[in-house]
């Protein structure tokens, strides 16, 4: 039963069927399946598949947006259960967002979900986030990590500006910064002064944990 429901959740997320994805996740939780399994084998599997189809030119931006919607809807009943499972042993606040001018939601949402499952309290600023909102969020939430995503070579350059501004305003002390997204690389992360580069969602989660010494 469990494999069938994981497959169904995955399919609903990939195809952007948010109502169905939500219903299936609730059903899986009621059936007593482990939240982490539902996340990884169902929800994350589905959104990863959408990403693969996007890469293969079989999905286009509108399809990806719907898949991301379904992903977020499916995460709603899961998130509280995932947090319960971490026993407060690790984590802290993690501010995440996609830089201004960039509308690509999928990768960021995926990283956010993985971080939540790892026990971080994720403050998601969304997409197309101006530098000032990153700065304000750091002041307001005092996170342990800020993560910035970009899909385009043009928009990724804003990460450098944001990091400089954080330094200028004296907000960098004790704050770790991660960058990620298709055009970024370890070299780019080094160049802009980030503490870590997230190659993909899993890698981002692992590096975030490493940054806080968990």
């Amino acid at each position: 039963m469990s494999e069938a429901i994981f497959d169904a959740i995955s399919k609903a997320v990939t195809e952007g069927e948010e109502v169905e994805a939500d219903r299936l996740v609730e059903q899986a939780l009621e059936a007593g399946l482990a939240p982490l399994d539902i996340l990884q084998k169902g929800v994350v599997h589905g959104i990863t598949r959408a990403g693969e189809l996007w890469k293969a030119n079989e999905y286009f931006l509108p399809d990806v947006i719907l898949a991301a919607d379904a992903f977020k809807t499916a995460m709603q009943p899961l998130e509280p259960r995932l947090k319960e499972g971490t026993d407060g042993r690790r984590g802290g606040k993690y501010v995440i967002g996609v830089v201004e001018g960039d509308m690509h939601d999928l990768g960021k949402s995926l990283v956010g979900a993985m971080l939540t499952s790892a026990g971080f309290e994720v403050i998601d600023l969304g997409i197309d986030v101006p530098a000032s909102r990153f700065i304000d969020a750091v002041k307001e939430h005092q996170p342990v990590i800020v993560g910035m995503g970009a899909y385009m070579t043009t928009t990724m350059l804003q990460m450098k500006t944001i990091i400089s501004e954080l330094e200028k305003q004296g907000l960098r002390r004790g704050l770790k910064i991660m960058v990620g997204g298709v055009p970024t690389s370890q070299e780019f992360a080094d160049e802009v002064g980030a503490d870590a580069w997230g190659k993909d969602a899993l890698d981002s989660m692992q590096k975030a944990l490493k940054l806080i010494g968990a």
């Binding site: 931006l61 947006i65 509308m103 939601d105």
Partner: peptide
């Protein structure tokens, strides 16, 4: 916003 506009077109 673009995402909402696209959702309307598709859904």
């Amino acid at each position: 916003g673009y995402p909402k506009a696209v959702r309307a077109l598709k859904r």
